[in-house]
Design a protein around this nucleic acid. Structure first.
Lengths: 183, 183
DNA sequence: ACCTGAACACCGTTCAAGT
DNA sequence: ACCTGAACACCGTTCAAGT
């Protein structure tokens, strides 16, 4: 079977899930596909763009939390949907955060929310969604690294419900601030 | 002059400021000190702990925004003080974020705030400070990578006041949420 | 105790050469 | 057009050997 960009991205995602972000190297991806490392550069310009494509695939699962009665409910559901999509893949939050910091990645998880907030008359939709995204990525990154440290036995296993509670609290904080008029 | 842990951390911070996080390698730090890379391991257990020490030195400049009339003002000042300390060193936000995700670093920038919120009767002081820290680190990381991309000419220079406005907005969002009772 | 020199097992990326 | 093989310039970490 011919080497394709999709196959390369798929192999990258597979290695991410199995061994973590640190092990997603051009050589490892090439090995998994039975090909030389240099061959990848015919289909992908560099490692960063490969990682960005993997991040996009992960984010594609987080699109559309559906319809909700209120804007607050929609935003809250959006945050939880995004978190679930990130928790489905090892180191996904860290990967998405660094990809977005570099301005790479085609999928913008905030696009839908920005429009809905604007239509709903919420002030600063862009800054608001950005703030919420920063919280989600930061929280889930910490969650995922803590899980791996615990898996290695370097850290006592954290209480599983604590992360859920703190996440919900943080989302509520931003959502309440969003619907409260600025001073 | 003898090689010391403090000199190693200082050289690391210097390379960070001059060349960025990606260039802070054990070999580069050793070179700057006129020493072999292996020599560092006599004073520092590994690269991560060296980076954690550099992160601690950066955070040490962000301690104590002083006293403020209200709790809201104090928290707001804390966020802005932390941002300024991070902006003073290249890639500092990314460095602090990854150090804290790994549970390394002796300095806890949230410690003071947690206590003040608890005394002030604010609910969930720990989750609240964590949420605000995630926002600050995420925002400043994006700010610093955008600045570097612009410096390389890969991206048009962003409007300098936009980052300030969005940061202030995000802080206000969390602070307002903090002082609004949960549903 | 402290540092050198050299090694081990890796990296991302490039590129002539083959098919 | 697409891939191999080999190279270039790096990594973090370890460790015998020197002083």
């Amino acid at each position: 079977m011919a080497l394709t960009r999709a196959a390369i991205v798929g192999a990258g995602l597979d290695i991410l899930d199995r061994y973590g972000l640190a092990d997603v190297s051009m050589r490892r991806v090439a090995d998994a596909l039975g090909v030389q490392a240099g061959a990848l550069y015919y289909h992908v310009p560099n490692k960063q763009s490969l990682l960005a494509a993997v991040a996009d695939e992960i984010l594609a699962d987080a699109l559309g939390p559906g319809d909700h009665p209120s804007l607050e409910d929609w935003v809250t559901a959006w945050a939880h949907t995004l978190r679930r999509a990130l928790l489905a893949h090892r180191d996904a939050a860290e990967l998405v955060a660094s990809t977005r910091a570099l301005g790479l990645g085609a999928v913008d998880p905030c696009a839908d929310g920005r429009e809905r907030l604007a239509v709903g008359g919420i002030a600063e939709p862009s800054a608001t969604m950005a703030a919420l995204l920063h919280f989600v990525l930061g929280h889930v990154t910490q969650e995922q690294t803590a899980a791996q440290m615990a898996a290695l036995g370097l850290t006592p296993a954290p209480e599983p419900t604590a992360a859920d509670r703190d996440f919900a609290w943080g989302v509520g904080l931003v959502v309440r601030g969003m619907t409260t008029a600025a001073a």
